[in-house]
């Protein structure tokens, strides 16, 4: 089980890290093969915040896209799922990961995600609609809500795409 979790952590770190930074994750993973189970897990866990930090520091475009994508996932998750547990897990997990990658910005990250959660609840309360996958077809109101969510997130991604890339 430990080996499997460590393997997943390395795979996630490799997927998140910028292409040019994946070599060190391979080296780190190879080193983990020489460690016992307890040390292996701690060793593997260290790569994830580092890869997130490198990914977010890599390009302004990708930071904006990632932030917008993350916000979209959380909003949709909270909106679709009437049970808030999944949302809270996703919210705290994402916040913890970002805060680990950017300790100096942890207050802003927590505030941003809290605001995101509040916005989705407010959206549900205002519209009185909490759609589920079983309810088809979507009503006009639900489609408007989807449009509202996209209107919140897509401009951020498009704006990010226009920002100049940082020199490497």
């Amino acid at each position: 089980m430990t080996k499997r979790i460590a393997s997943l952590l390395f795979a996630a770190a490799r997927a998140i890290a910028p292409r040019g930074e994946r070599k060190w994750i391979d080296a780190m993973r190879a080193e983990a093969g020489a460690l016992d189970d307890g040390a292996k897990l701690v060793w593997a866990a260290g790569g994830l915040p580092a890869s997130v930090r490198l990914r977010l520091a890599d390009k302004t475009t990708e930071f904006a896209t990632l932030a917008a994508g993350l916000a979209l996932v959380i909003i949709l998750l909270d909106w679709i799922n009437p049970d808030p547990d999944g949302t809270i897990v996703a919210l705290s997990g994402s916040s913890a990961l970002l805060a680990a990658a950017f300790p100096a910005r942890r207050i802003g990250i927590g505030f941003g995600f809290g605001l995101c959660l509040f916005a989705t609840h407010a959206l549900g309360e205002l519209t009185g609609v909490r759609p589920s996958y079983h309810e088809v077809p979507l009503t006009v109101r639900e489609l408007l809500e989807v449009a509202a969510v996209l209107a919140l997130t897509v401009p951020a991604a498009l704006l990010g795409a226009r920002l100049p890339r940082q020199a490497s």
Binding site: E21, K23, W24, I25, A27, M28, E31, A34, L35, A39, V42, W43, A44, G46, G47, L48, P49, A50, S51, L54
Partner: peptide, 22 residues
């Protein structure tokens, strides 16, 4: 030198050590 002994010797976490080595 391998990464794990270097991490123990320096007190660096793996996620700090390897980007630094790279």
């Amino acid at each position: 030198r391998h990464g794990f002994p270097l991490a123990r010797e320096t007190g660096l976490a793996s996620g700090t050590l390897y980007p630094l080595l790279a």
